[in-house]
Design a protein around this nucleic acid. Structure first.
Length: 488
RNA sequence: GGCGGCAUAGCCAAGUGGUAAGGCAGCGGUCUGCAAAACCGCUAUUCUCCGGUUCGAAUCCGGAUGCCGCCUCCA
């Protein structure tokens, strides 16, 4: 069976069948650049990064568009407060966005348009809507007339009549229907503005996505994504604008990721219960964050907590430890020219085919970890050619899964080096001193002076260091308890 | 008020008709001078509750309870 995607529009999983065979055109709503992004924003970006990676892995040629909303009330307000121009503020937060997303190993989209680069096209689009009687101008403002678009509400599953009853909507007397939304806003003093057929002003929020997507992907394209909170009104309004203007299907598959919750509540800027991605990156390995964000199916909510992050980090270390073990064991063995994928990658792809089920896929990754460890435990002294081949294949499988999930991208040895230096920085331990103690203990053990050896181990333990006596010699690491205590 | 989602072990989490993946934590074992790491075994006769459909349901239908989301900017 092929790839299936849950389509918000039909509320069911559908076989994925792109408009043009072999090609996927996908548009995802990007950030409004007025502040640093929090972990909830990052989830959406990471989820669709994985979607694009998997589609490419599956052989599709993917054109992925992710926009920057760089003109908006929040940007203007913040810029005023910070005594900056809105443009400078937007530029700054685009840079900050890239800083965080690059650290998170998010690939750049194929095209990353900015709203303010498409003002002329927006004006032309709005004119089309006015011609079709789907929009009207009042005193330099232009509104979309929701009542004139028959399908209004089809994505979010609501009807105008139902909504009107309990909704808190502004009572703008100039609107024909309270749910009519701005396509163009006339300029107020001190705001950025552009020339238009209706006088100086700036675009409404929803129009940019309709315009830039059709401009860059065509009037009809395959996948449109974003967070669940964009279903209404944003995506509903995009459909109204685009299908109203063109008379054609806008996006064919609508994908929406669930929220990051904190204490079972949605994380959001307005609730003030958010954590910046950057602050988390200071405390956890970037791949820990990715693993955490991908450990639930993308449509489900995911609960943010230090316990869950810590669990993800332990899991990530387990995989890297296994990869390092394989590397060590396989070092003397010549690497084959080409390694075909094996059982685990096959199962992983099956999981991903089912609406990008990364949670199931990660389970399969761990399954492979356990089995590979077992093979090596059983092998003891010498490796059979069969075991070598199994290990080569499973390592290859894991690295391929890692490519799609955006993890396991560095050499295991380097990963543990990074981890060690982060840990040492966190607990302020002197590595030389530890090395010295470990050498003393090794000497004591060689002399079978177990009392002395254990005394040194206790001393290290006190310092928050755990020693492991491995076949190749003793190694040490900073114990988790110590780190957690220091950070609490 | 309208619309929608979720409820699986101590915790996180897969599983959409065929008899409960995976991870974390815990306990027992193998290994080890003792540990650590790794592996093995144990830990949900059962999937919030009550009915119904079916040879068979965590999975479908009806109802109850609880939690959450959208309807206003929000990923």
């Amino acid at each position: 069976m092929g790839l299936r995607i849950y389509n918000t529009l039909t509320r069911q999983k559908e076989p994925f069948d792109p408009l043009t065979p072999g090609q996927v055109k996908m548009y995802v709503c990007g950030p409004t650049v007025y502040d640093l992004c929090h972990i909830g924003n990052a989830r959406s970006v990471v989820v669709f990064d994985v979607v694009a990676r998997y589609l490419r892995q599956r052989g599709y040629q993917v054109t992925y568009v992710r926009n920057f909303t760089d003109v908006d009330d929040k940007i203007i307000n913040r810029a005023n407060r910070m005594k900056m121009t809105p443009d400078a503020l937007a530029n700054r937060y685009i840079d900050e966005f890239y800083t965080d997303m690059d650290t998170l190993n998010v690939e750049r989209a194929t095209l990353e348009p900015r709203a303010t680069d498409h003002i002329d096209q927006m004006c032309r689009f709005i004119e089309r809507l006015i011609e079709k009687n789907l929009a009207y101008e009042v005193d330099g403002d232009v509104y979309f007339a929701v009542e004139n678009f028959r399908d209004y509400g089809k994505l979010s599953g609501r009807r105008l009549d139902d909504m009107a009853a309990g909704a808190r909507v502004d009572v703008d007397k100039r609107k024909r229907n309270p749910f009519d939304f701005s396509l163009w806003k006339s300029a107020k003093p001190g705001e950025p503005s552009w020339e238009s057929p209706w006088g100086r002003g700036r675009p409404g929020w929803h129009i940019e996505c309709s315009v830039m997507s059709s401009e860059l992907l065509g009037e009809t394209f395959d996948i449109h994504g974003g967070g669940k909170d964009l279903i209404f009104p944003h995506h509903e309004n995009e459909i109204a604008q685009s299908e109203g203007a063109t008379g054609r299907t806008f996006a064919r598959y609508w994908m929406h990721n669930g929220y990051v919750n904190i204490n079972r509540e949605k994380m959001s800027k307005s609730l003030g219960n958010f954590t910046f991605t950057r602050d988390l990156l200071a405390r956890y390995h970037p791949e820990t964050l990715r693993l955490f964000l991908l450990s639930n199916q993308y449509r489900s909510p995911i609960d943010f907590s230090d316990q869950n992050l810590a669990q993800a980090e332990i899991g990530l270390e387990k995989v890297y430890a296994l990869l390092k073990r394989i590397d060590d064991v396989l070092r003397p063995v010549p690497r084959p020219e080409k390694i075909s994928t094996g059982e685990y990658f096959g199962r992983f792809c099956k999981a991903m085919d089912d609406d990008f089920n990364t949670a199931r896929g990660i389970g399969i990754l761990f399954d492979g970890v356990r089995h590979a460890n077992k093979w090596m435990d059983n092998a003891r002294e010498s490796l059979s050619p069969e075991t070598v081949s199994l290990l080569q294949t499973v390592r290859n499988d894991m690295l391929k899964m890692g490519e799609i999930l955006g993890i396991l991208t560095i050499l295991p040895a380097l990963f543990f080096e990074q981890k060690r230096s982060r840990s040492l920085a966190a607990v302020e331990i002197d590595a030389d001193r530890i090395d010295q103690l470990v050498r003393q203990r090794t000497k004591a053990r060689a002399e079978k002076d177990w009392d002395a050896a254990d005394r040194i181990r206790d001393q290290l333990d006190e310092m928050g260091v755990t020693v492991e006596d491995r076949p190749g010699g003793a190694v040490w690491k900073v114990s988790r308890n110590k780190i957690d205590t220091e950070q609490a």
